[in-house]
């Protein structure tokens, strides 16, 4: 009897949760579906949900009429580039703070975090003018620099929380067993640090890929990543729903897939360890 009741409750939960999940996901699903329609079908009234002439015309047109892959490549270079440069700077810093904490380590960490609280619009003008005068406007290098700096605090924080979970005694044990510094780094530290570094990399690629303040303000055409490219569909191209959907689907697909792998790291990375 009790079991029947739980099963009934479970069924109701399942039903409600799936319905809500579907509703929240619907705009994304609708975008994906529309990208496979023709322009006429995309604005047909009443709209057809599944029974339309599935085709890839919109995708072809997006690439033909605007250099889509250039912007895709810009997004890859900017998000991956800034994350890798950020990691190269952050790994030693997080490493030393986690294993050789000093009196002021906590203050340094908090101060680094505070730079993340600076609203971008507060420093937009100086950065814009510096970029204008140094020829960095609308260059990928310029955006890699800005993205590295705005994500550096998050990268350091995430790495710090991961590194702190590596027990320091294990290093001493390895040393006792006669391991050289090289052995120590390759066989002991690296395997333990890699998962944390990978999670940090994943989350920061996602954050940089979707960043839309600096990319919109500091790029025009050449270095525009997908965020800025899609913004150019604002009007009137936005009224061609199939093309808008195709461009949007291609812009969000890689990150949706990466994002699903990074759910746990997301909480850790974005709450700075305040919620576990």
């Amino acid at each position: 009897m009790a079991r029947a009741v739980t099963n009934q409750r479970k069924s109701i939960n399942t039903l409600i949760a799936w319905a809500i999940g579907f509703l929240i996901f619907f705009p994304i699903l609708w975008t994906i579906l529309t990208s496979f329609k023709t322009e006429a079908e995309a604005i047909a009234s009443p709209p057809s949900f599944l029974f339309f002439h599935w085709n890839l015309d919109a995708y072809h047109e997006v690439q033909e009429r605007s250099n889509y892959f250039l912007h895709f490549w810009n997004s890859v270079v900017i998000s991956l580039g800034s994350t890798l440069v950020g990691l190269a700077i952050a790994i030693p810093a997080a490493w030393s703070m986690a294993f050789v904490p000093a009196k002021r380590t906590k203050d340094v960490l908090m101060w680094m975090l505070s730079t993340k609280m600076l609203p971008p619009v507060g420093v937009l003008i100086p950065i814009y003018l510096i970029f204008r005068d140094t020829g960095l406007l609308d260059t990928r290098i310029g955006l890699v620099i800005v993205m590295t700096l705005i994500n550096l605090p998050i990268i350091i924080w995430m790495l710090f929380t991961y590194f702190r979970e590596i027990p320091g005694e294990i290093l001493e044990a390895a040393r006792m067993d006669g391991a050289t510094l090289r052995d120590e780094i390759i066989h002991v530290l690296t395997p333990m640090a890699v998962p944390g570094i990978a999670s940090t990399l994943l989350l920061n690629v996602i954050l940089s890929w979707n960043e839309a303040f600096w990319t919109l303000n500091l790029t025009a055409a050449k270095a525009a990543p997908l965020t800025a490219f899609i913004a150019s569909y604002s009007s009137p191209e936005g009224l061609f729903y199939a093309k808008l959907s195709a461009a949007s689907t291609m812009a969000i697909a890689p990150i949706l897939i990466l994002g699903w792998f990074s759910q746990k790291q997301l909480v850790r990375g974005l709450t700075f360890g305040a919620v576990k």
Binding site: G21, P27, I28, T227, A231, Y241, L256
Partner: peptide, 24 residues
Amino acid sequence: IVRILVIAPFFVMPTVSALVWKNM
């Protein structure tokens, strides 16, 4: 699966979500 569906919008870049909502 439900959790994946619910979390998905967070990974949509702001310009895409704004334009999709605005137009479609």
